[in-house]
Design a protein around this nucleic acid. Structure first.
Lengths: 215, 215
DNA sequence: ACCTGAACACCGTTCAAGT
DNA sequence: ACCTGAACACCGTTCAAGT
């Protein structure tokens, strides 16, 4: 069977596959080329550099988000849906998530979620600097949540170390951490995400009401 | 003059210096050794691997945080102070920040901020799973904020691209992003951080009051 | 105990040569 | 236009040899 022609898309897809299978550290131009059965240098006919390839990976993952926006729904529901759609990345591409949130994207793939969020915030009455502030707060929370979910941000599970022994954390040095160890150890990512999301939305509703009151 | 003896501390300090001067990509065992005027392999007498060295960097940066906690202050003020102390990392070690938030630390350096935060939350009446939830929400927001501040998370500044031209974003494709471009372009990191922090604290106060009311 | 150079198995990318 | 191997300047780490 004749192999499909090499293309940027095939290269990016192979990279994503490799990252999800073996982690971001496993990605190398040589490795991807081997995976595709071509010489390393063939890749450079379709991608200018490894850096550009990784941007392509981030864009591809971002493009896969399914934003099913209902313009008739209440704005709080639309925000909820968008936040959840974004969180889906951590589920669909856990080991690529870090790449997605850590790369500055200026293409359509990166701008579309922002465009949607700003439109939703406008429908809620937030315009200009207010809308941008709200957006940034949501992004910060979502990005931080995703990083915890994919395991790059501390979750404080006890491991074998000087301070963290097999029996757990030293209770005289860290009484709180020690007593809450079982709770810190486990994490229902969806529940935690939803909790913060609700709190944030409630806070924004209250904030808007406050401004309305002082007008 | 006789050179100081090589030590884990000196190696870590050199690594931090190098990261802040030239970025995380510039860090290599060979480069650090050269900086210290020793052979590469000498490093391995004090540090088991590059990975361990980077953990050392994260711990050292984290240890430099100045937590000036006042147990008599109102818990909201204590939370504010702790959040700001953490944000100080982005100011003191911008190019090491990613390393700090992306490494799972189980040593005293990583546990201390958690211990303090949990103690403060307890004084506010949050115990058990509630305290852990609050803590996680704050961490998510702070981590996300720091990543934006050090420039790894999208800030959506217009650059030259297919969708983002020199004149700005295509207004027909991205009307919101386009009209808010000047606001998206600039960011007062302190103001943005404080805004979200206040909103979060207000949300928690309201949340607690709501629970109190239904008791 | 600490240092070290040589060596091994890798990297990304340039270049000149092929078709 | 697309592919490629050789080459260059790098990596982290193992190992055996030194003091």
């Amino acid at each position: 069977m004749p192999t499909e022609p090499l293309s940027r898309g095939r290269i990016v897809a192979t990279a994503i596959d490799l990252i999800e299978r073996e982690g971001a550290d496993a990605v190398s131009m040589r490795r991807i080329a081997a995976e595709l059965g071509v010489g390393v240098m063939s890749l450079y006919n379709h991608v200018p550099s490894k850096d550009a390839l990784l941007n392509g990976v981030a864009e591809a993952v971002l493009s896969e988000i399914e934003f099913t926006d209902d313009p008739d729904a209440h704005w709080t529901d639309r925000v909820r849906m968008q936040a959840r759609a974004f969180r889906q990345i951590a589920h669909d591409h856990p080991r690529s998530t870090m790449l997605v949130v850590s790369r500055q994207l200026h293409s359509a793939a990166g701008l579309l979620p922002v465009e949607r969020a700003l439109a939703t915030l406008r429908s809620a009455g937030f315009v200009g600097a207010d809308a941008v502030r709200m957006l940034r707060m949501f992004i910060a929370y979502i990005v931080g949540s995703l990083l915890r979910e994919v395991g790059v941000t501390p979750s404080f599970a006890p491991v074998h170390d000087r301070t963290v022994t097999a029996e757990g954390v030293d209770p005289t040095l860290f009484p709180e951490v020690s007593s809450l160890a079982p709770l810190l150890d486990e994490c229902d990512h969806e529940a935690e995400f939803e909790f913060g999301l609700e709190l944030l939305i409630q806070a924004i509703v209250a904030h808007a009401a406050r401004k309305e009151g002082t007008r």
